[in-house]
Simulated scan of single mutants.
Amino acid sequence: MAKERGQRVIASNRKARHDYEILDIYEAGIALVGTEVKSLRHGRVSLADAYASVDDGEIFLRGLHVPEYTHGSWTNHEPRRVRKLLLHRKEIARLIGKTHEGGLTLVPLSLYFKDGYAKVELALARGKKAHDKRQAIAKRDAQREIQRAMGRFAKGRDLA
């Protein structure tokens, strides 16, 4: 079988970009068992409740739901087990320092295959307040209206 090339997104956490202010993004590998990989290749995963935490100088992904592989046997995995993230030592030290700093959390943004390896895009984020969310929505709506007006102007239509 030919080796897989390129990047294929399995799942993305769109709500994370709405609920959090993204400060920094890291790419991390995930320690998985065989049936988890097969289930991921079928695109069956949920990042909705997932988050990362620091334990004993290592970073773990918690709350990631990977359903059991349908053709698996007694060797099937537990759907919500804790999974170790694979990062460089310097990155781990930096993330530990930032999360202990206060108010920052580690949130998975997307899960994908890159050259055959399962990877997670991990964000160092700060939670948004309700008024920040409203401001972001208002700003996005204003940008959309500006683009529409520019499009109408470019087509020679009336601006009113």
Rank of each mutant, 00 (worst) to 15 (best):
A130S: 12
H100A: 13
R134Y: 13
L32G: 11
L111V: 14
W74T: 09
R134I: 05
L111C: 07
E121G: 08
A160I: 13
L86I: 10
G6N: 08
R83N: 05
Y69G: 01
G97N: 11
H100N: 13
S73P: 00
A2S: 12
G102D: 10
S39N: 00
R62D: 12
D132Y: 05
R126M: 13
A50N: 04
A160G: 14
K38E: 04
E78F: 15
G57W: 02
I25F: 03
E101T: 04
R17L: 15
N13S: 08
E36T: 03
R126F: 12
Q147S: 11
R80T: 09
L32W: 06
Y51K: 13
N13C: 07
I96Q: 13
R44M: 07
R144P: 07
R62A: 10
L109N: 04
L106S: 10
T70R: 12
N13K: 04
R44C: 00
V120Q: 01
T70F: 01
K139I: 15
S110A: 13
K15E: 15
D141F: 10
D158C: 10
S12Q: 14
A28W: 03
Y20A: 03
A16K: 03
H131C: 07
N76P: 07
E145A: 15
R94C: 11
A130F: 10
P67D: 12
L32A: 09
V107Y: 08
L122V: 05
M150C: 06
R8H: 15
K15C: 04
H88T: 09
D158F: 15
D24N: 12
H100C: 06
T99S: 04
I25C: 09
V9N: 10
G43W: 02
S39I: 01
P67T: 08
L85M: 11
K90D: 15
F153L: 15
D19F: 02
D56T: 00
G34K: 00
E36K: 00
L23S: 09
D24K: 15
A31I: 02
R8P: 08
F113W: 06
H77G: 07
T105M: 11
E58S: 07
Y112W: 08
G151Y: 01
G72H: 02
L23P: 07
A160T: 14
K38A: 03
I146K: 12
Q147A: 11
A50W: 00
L122G: 08
V33A: 04
K84P: 00
T35W: 02
E91W: 01
V33D: 01
Q7D: 12
D132F: 05
S73M: 04
S46A: 12
L104T: 15
D141L: 12
A125L: 10
E145N: 11
D19N: 07
K3F: 11
S46E: 01
H42W: 03
I146V: 15
L106G: 09
Y117F: 13
H18P: 00
Q143R: 09
I30Q: 05
L95W: 03
K90Q: 13
L23T: 06
S46M: 07
Y117C: 13
A52M: 04
A28N: 05
I96N: 02
